[in-house]
């Protein structure tokens, strides 16, 4: 598999706090990459910096042969890098269809064509019955689906999902994971940021672990889970000793 996104030495700090120090890794074609780490480890900062919401203080982001470091969000979306937000952010006063049409207009010239694409995406996301419902009337699970659906309508190469399962019950979580797999089967590479270990291990091909803005570990899910540094970062030193 070739490298789709190459992140080298990415740095970002806020008023003296180093949120990201020298983070480097690759995202390969068609892969689901898990990005995990304890609270405040820099996961969301990472997504926001790649997506162009924050300007990086240093480092480079290459999308294939194209240098996309520090491009603004709208341009990143044009380059095929889509993202969802940690807290679900649909356009609350618009209908499901309008929400998705807005995204679909990125590649479609007319609203009619965008509507066709949007309805396709809405079907994939399983929101077909809610076409004309206002986003504000949707429960959290459907809002999360709508978020995913909007990114799908951008025809992206990569989707960065920032805790897209937060607030869901176990059954909804399973259905959410299935949807992510469906998107992945369509050839979209996914950076999957999540707290819930079980979800990450079952879904991801590979995992990178961030801690305090640094890359702590990288590898296959099973290997990473056994890494003592990772356990220490998550649970504190004493658990390792207890385990021994």
């Amino acid at each position: 598999m070739g490298t789709l996104l190459k992140v080298s030495n990415l740095k970002k700090s806020f008023g003296g706090v180093h949120a990201l120090k020298d983070v480097s890794f690759d995202l390969r074609d068609g892969e689901i990459l898990g990005l995990i780490g304890p609270n405040g480890s820099g996961k969301s900062t990472f997504v926001n910096t790649i997506a162009g919401l924050h300007q990086p203080d240093g480092g480079e982001v290459m999308l294939g042969e194209v240098n996309v470091t520090g491009l603004e969000p709208a341009i990143m979306a044009r380059h095929g890098v889509a993202r969802t937000f940690q807290s679900s952010r649909p356009f609350l006063n618009l209908t499901v269809l309008e929400n998705v049409v807005i995204a679909a207009l990125l590649h479609e010239k007319t609203t009619a064509a965008a509507e066709t694409l949007a309805i396709e995406c809405i079907e994939v996301a399983g929101l077909k019955d809610l076409l004309y419902a206002k986003a504000s009337s949707l429960p959290i699970e459907k809002r999360r689906r709508l978020d995913l659906c909007r990114t799908l309508a951008l025809k992206p190469k990569i989707i960065m999902l920032d805790e897209c399962l937060a607030g869901l019950n176990p059954r909804e979580m399973e259905e959410g994971l299935d949807l992510v797999r469906v998107l992945n089967k369509r050839g979209i590479a996914i950076i999957f940021i999540e707290h819930v270990m079980k979800a990450v291990v079952s879904l991801c091909h590979r995992i990178v672990v961030l801690n305090q803005g640094e890359l702590l570990a990288e590898g296959a899910p099973a290997d990473v889970m056994k890494n003592t540094k990772v356990i220490a970062a998550y649970l504190g030193e004493k658990y390792i000793h207890a385990g021994n």
Partner: peptide, 20 residues
Amino acid sequence: LYLAAIREDQDAAESLGVKT
């Protein structure tokens, strides 16, 4: 539609490729 997206949430609009 783009203006409506801007009214609702500028950051989200940007993330969907809207040059706000």
